[in-house]
Simulated assay, not measured.
Amino acid sequence: MKFPHFCYLVTLVSVLFSCSKESNTETDKTIDPPIVIDLVPTSAYFPPISRTNQWETVSFNALGWNEENVPTLLNFLEENDTDAFIILKNGRIVLEEYFGDFTMDDNHAWNSAGKNLTAMLTGIAQEEEYLNITDASSIYLGEGWTSLTPEQEQNISIKNQLTMTTGLDYTVDNNFCTDPECLQYLKEPNSNWYYHNAPYTLLDDVIANAVNTDFNTYFSEKIKEPIGMQGTFIKIGYNNVFFSTARSMARFGILNLQEGNWDGTTILNDMDYFNAMTNTSQDLNLAYGYLYWLNGKESFKLPNSEDTFTGNLIPNAPTDLYAALGKNDQKLYMVPSMDLVVVRMGGASDEELLGPSSFDNEIWGYIMDIIQQPTP
């Protein structure tokens, strides 16, 4: 299913969420001049949670980065249907660009990059003892949420949904369909990895039923509002798609780099869960955590494929990078060793894959040309 740009919502839903702006934490902005840091930042920065666009910036000169290579990157982005692009260092903006008629205030679909939001929210629900990821999914979805026998269904856990290891048949006509007749037995859980969207989508119902609260409401209370994000999940067909500004995606990147802490406020306190979420979660696809994509592993699998490929997921990128990756090249990259967050929103570059694509390696080639110091 292809998700068009943000204006697609206008005829689908009636919410307090316009085609270009949402009435929330970052709208009705006062226009504040950027606060430019001329020294190399060493402390983490958290943009204010208020009705303002204030966000500290740091110069290329202060970082010693190669600003002369920026035009090449921007040309590449523009040629590949990019709408928004941001690089943060220690939470501060180094580069922020919008293309065409897309602006800072416009909302864009995250597509499968929104899986990371659900993964973190699952950890919060577990920390609050609403659920345990080792629980059978049927506890929260009810018996008969699949076409399996009760015994087979009981073997599928929330963790299987988080790690794409449910064993449900991904060869059905509609891989997104969450109706019981679409969820059929193929293999035992934990015996195969496949990027199957339907079991993931049902995690939203698992969380909502566990906490006895609307999914959007719980997400807003636990993640969105505490870190100053805006945006909302919208049901489109079988999918639950998150829409927000590029800066809101960047805020979530900062939260990840700070391991679930926002300027002294704990969003996710369970470090065992956070570490499991952002590291290899099973031995079937080493480049996959709890709905997070991981670089620097010995091998990886890709959506729509049963093949295993040798080497790093993104060879040009730092090996400790982990990411939220969505269809049509929605990208949220996080690099702990370099305190970097990189956001890219737009249309498909040259492919329409569900997550990783050749675009990842190409863009990181250009980014590293900017970040790396020239050889004397």
Rank of each mutant, 00 (worst) to 15 (best):
D135S: 01
M120S: 07
L121A: 09
N111E: 12
M120D: 03
W110R: 01
N116Q: 14
D106G: 07
Q126P: 05
M120P: 02
A119I: 02
E127V: 13
S112R: 03
T118K: 13
T134P: 04
E128R: 15
A109Y: 09
N132M: 06
N116V: 15
T118G: 10
A125G: 05
A119K: 01
N107T: 15
W110V: 00
G114D: 07
E127I: 10
M120C: 06
N111V: 12
M104H: 15
L141R: 01
N132Y: 03
D105M: 11
M104I: 15
T118P: 05
A113P: 07
T122G: 07
H108K: 13
T118E: 09
I139W: 06
A136K: 02
L121S: 08
I124A: 03
A109E: 08
N132H: 05
K115Q: 07
E128C: 08
E128M: 12
H108L: 09
D106V: 11
N116E: 14
S112K: 03
G142V: 08
M120F: 06
S112L: 08
S138N: 11
Y130L: 09
A113T: 05
S112F: 03
S137A: 12
L131I: 04
W110S: 00
Y130D: 11
E129S: 14
M120G: 03
K115V: 05
T134S: 12
E129Q: 12
T134K: 10
N132L: 07
A109I: 05
A136S: 06
L131W: 04
K115P: 12
W110D: 00
T118L: 10
A109H: 09
S138M: 04
H108G: 11
L117F: 04
E128P: 09
S138V: 10
D106Q: 13
A119P: 01
M120I: 11
S137H: 10
I139M: 11
L141I: 06
A113D: 03
E128K: 12
Y140H: 01
D135Q: 01
L121W: 05
A119S: 06
L131S: 05
L131H: 09
D105A: 12
T122Q: 13
A125I: 08
H108C: 07
Y140E: 01
T118C: 08
D105I: 15
I124P: 00
D135A: 03
W110N: 00
I133H: 01
Y130C: 09
D106F: 11
T122V: 13
D105Y: 12
T122H: 11
G114K: 10
G142H: 13
N132P: 00
W110H: 01
Q126I: 06
T122E: 06
Y140D: 00
A113Q: 04
E129N: 13
N111Q: 13
M120R: 07
L117M: 02
A125L: 06
D105K: 14
N116D: 10
T118N: 06
I124R: 02
D135R: 00
G114I: 13
A113K: 07
H108R: 11
W110L: 00
A119Y: 01
M104E: 15
S137K: 11
A119F: 06
Y140W: 02
E127F: 13
G114M: 09
N107H: 15
I139N: 04
G142C: 11
E127Y: 14
